[in-house]
Design a protein around this nucleic acid. Structure first.
Lengths: 341, 341
DNA sequence: CATTAGCAATCACCTTGCGAGTCTGCTAAG
DNA sequence: CTTAGCAGACTCGCAAGGTGATTGCTAATG
């Protein structure tokens, strides 16, 4: 593809992102001042259409980028501007306070993503089975129940009420035992081991009880990730200008309310690299009208932005990248600190 | 207001709830078989309109209930049908599992409310300052930070990372001290006391440190309540048939995303009684097109349904009442159990 | 061979007008 | 107090017609 065609494709995507309307050969000529005529541009547009980069909304409309066109744009034509000082400042400021609670931190991160991009910001909690056990506490609540609190590094706290008739002193003993023998273990591995065989040397009465407890505590849905979203209002506002917004918004909400499907939609954002999923590339059909820019910030926690395919990728990508780096830094600091301590 | 007028008002509200259209004198005559003519009904409708119970959409349309009309309907004319066996069963079944984690429990409750009513279900977490302290744990994370885990009865767990340079053994000592002296105290009172003066007898070095810690732990935003919502999709679907759905939905989402405003909207649902807030009765302007049916299920935790003013109050009220009672039962059982233990 | 000008054809979008249907208010009679 | 009958008001849906944007095509140009 020659330089002029690339330029034309870029301008079509650019202009369509900004205006939301089909882009005509005229427009490109006027706004971006090429030194050729509109007919030439039309010829190039035909070429681009044949290769599947752009399409027409109807037989004689201007051109609209296809998913393939966006993909090419993002991969080859996107010019990442550095985030404006002002926004960087806003982000740093927002993170200056608010480090006391992980959920607040992630919640705020989602909010930042949303408000700075004007789309839907989301943060998926890290997978607790990827983190290491820091501390276990067992608290007697009633004759039949105890509360188990499980603290991993990163300050992730998981608690559940488990049925047990063991007396208080025994629970305390078990708690101490568990803390001594399991501290620093990666929870996922622990779960896997426990599923196969009891830990070695665990044979007396107390440790058998302990074993039963730990199994209840660690095995079930440990990998469960919570999803925080913010800025749904932004997203719906953009959806409303489409045709059949009712149906679109409904489908969107259904996916968002079903965490498992959303997880599926993220695909393997498992690497640390920033990932874009554009329109129909998404494995979840309902999300075909949207693009996702996402980033793994550690421990399989994912953060990102979900917006219309027609969004300002430059802004969204740089914002996501920046916020992702900040969050990763904050988390690895507390992680590193935990390792020294 | 004589019996026939009441009946007519009831039928207007009834019919409008079911069909969503303005109700004509004809319709009432046909569907509900009164033994008078449509002209008589028209006269009564005029009466009802003058008193502000119903209104016209335009100069010669059928009648639509006003907020005052709905209020009268809900307060005096509503016939509560017992919840269908099938639905009761579904609720009991849903609660049969899933008692391990409070957040899951509340999440599921919101989901139940939403799916059984077809509107938006919400659950506001109990206020932790209304509950009693069960257990405190302090865990060293790094040289400069510790994780404080605070467990109240009901199994509510609050954790935060606090800056401290105290060594591990000392933290443990402080933890033990705190558990002994503060166990069973109501957290809200505790916070109030601490704000005024140190606890008596706390004078040596260890307890001073402990005091500083507890202040950090308990004072700030302890009363903060989290909001779980489900079924936004349902609600939006109904909004879409209105005029200017874009604007309406946007305003709705803005309120839902801002917990403080939502709290304001609930007003004082502080009693245990079921409360209805209909349309313009709501202090939050943006929610005027909606009604809220809510219920305090204990410790200032609120659960309920938000739907269009035109909703099936009979179904919604009985569902909310039933689910509220179930949840209250579940929570008071674990509370009572904790008290025995 | 790439580029250009000019022109007919296509199509969305907006406005307008019309007809059918619905419901009320009013008046006068029962 | 109730009823019948009727004019007037208004919605709703549909079709027609005008406007403006944009393309593809063809033939001419450098």
């Amino acid at each position: 593809m020659d330089a002029r065609k690339r330029l034309i494709l870029k301008e079509i995507v650019d202009h369509h992102i900004r205006t939301g309307r089909a882009v005509s050969s005229q427009t490109i000529l006027e706004k971006y001042g090429l030194s050729v005529s509109s007919a030439t541009i039309r010829n190039d547009m035909k070429y681009l259409e044949q290769r599947g980069y752009i399409r027409k909304a109807w037989s004689s409309s201007g051109r609209i980028p296809t998913a393939k066109g966006y993909r090419f744009f993002v991969d080859w034509l996107l010019e990442l501007s550095e985030l404006a000082r002002k926004q960087q400042h806003a982000i740093l400021e927002a993170y200056a306070f608010q480090k006391q609670r992980l959920d607040e931190l992630l919640h705020q991160t989602a909010f930042l993503l949303a408000s700075l991009t004007g789309h839907l910001g989301f943060v998926l909690t890290p997978r607790i089975d990827q983190t290491e056990l820091e501390f276990i506490a067992l608290v007697k609540l009633s004759p039949d129940h105890a509360l188990a609190v499980l603290v991993s590094d990163l300050g992730i706290v998981e608690s559940r009420i488990i049925p047990t008739t063991l007396p208080e002193e025994q629970l305390e003993k078990i708690g101490n035992l568990l803390n001594r023998s399991l501290h620093g273990r990666r929870l996922g591995e622990l779960a896997a081991e426990l599923a196969e065989s009891p830990l070695e040397g665990w044979s007396d009465r107390v440790t058998q009880d302990a074993f039963a407890l730990v199994q209840q505590l660690i095995t079930p849905q440990l990998a469960r990730q919570r999803l925080y979203t913010e800025g749904l209002a932004h997203l719906l506002q953009t959806v409303f200008s489409w045709e059949d917004p009712i149906e679109e918004a409904r489908k969107l909400l259904c996916v968002l309310e079903d965490e498992s499907r959303f997880l599926q939609a993220l695909g393997r954002t498992r690497t640390g690299e920033l990932t874009t999923i554009i329109g129909e590339e998404n494995p979840v059909k309902e999300l075909h009208p949207y693009s996702i820019v996402s980033l793994n910030y550690g421990y399989d926690g994912v953060l990102g932005v979900l917006g219309p395919v027609r969004m300002d990728y430059s802004k969204v990508v740089s914002t996501t990248q920046y916020i992702g780096n900040r969050l990763r830094a904050i988390l690895t600091i507390s992680k590193a600190a935990a390792a020294w301590g």
